[in-house]
């Protein structure tokens, strides 16, 4: 398996960047010729991960969110979303559907969306240091007749 393309960027944890981040990753993924459903799955998962950096990792402060992506010759897109925020004490618990640590109107479904819309998710987190989310999805090759 070989990496055939990559990008990386960083953004400030401002909520206005949620739309920018998911649109950018979707534009990168477009070169794999995904279906509309596949592109929407990626957009939704990225939106969840980036929002978590803004809402949970940095809270009232503003920090940097590092986003990178890779495409392999096996038609897999891998996306990494990292923050240097507060970290997650109990990752297993945080990933349970409906679990949320903030009041207001969080649904507690961000991780559930990432899990069900992507093929795989890995979470690495250290309290006080930050969190890294690795998402990957295989895009089914589409063969067209007459190009």
């Amino acid at each position: 398996m070989e990496i055939i393309n990559k990008f990386s960027m960083n953004i400030l944890s401002r909520s206005a960047n949620e739309g920018f981040a998911r649109a950018t990753v979707a534009a990168f993924a477009a070169q794999l010729d995904p279906t509309l459903e596949e592109i929407n799955d990626i957009k939704t998962a990225v939106s969840e991960a980036v929002t978590n950096c803004i809402v949970h990792a940095y809270r009232e402060s503003i920090g940097k969110i590092y986003i990178s992506g890779e495409i392999t010759d096996t038609n897999i897109i891998k996306i990494k979303i990292r923050d240097n925020g507060c970290g997650i004490e109990n990752v297993e618990k945080a990933m349970e559907p409906l679990y949320t640590t903030v009041g207001g109107e969080r649904a507690g479904l961000g991780f559930a969306v990432m899990q069900s819309f992507m093929d795989s998710i890995r979470v690495r987190s250290h309290v006080g240091k930050g969190t890294t989310i690795l998402l990957s999805k295989k895009i089914a090759p589409r063969y067209t007749v007459n190009g």
Partner: peptide, 13 residues
């Protein structure tokens, strides 16, 4: 044109 789980929070609320 797009909704993530923040929209679910909105509907539930």
């Amino acid at each position: 044109s797009f909704m993530d789980s923040s929209g679910i929070g909105l509907v539930m609320g």
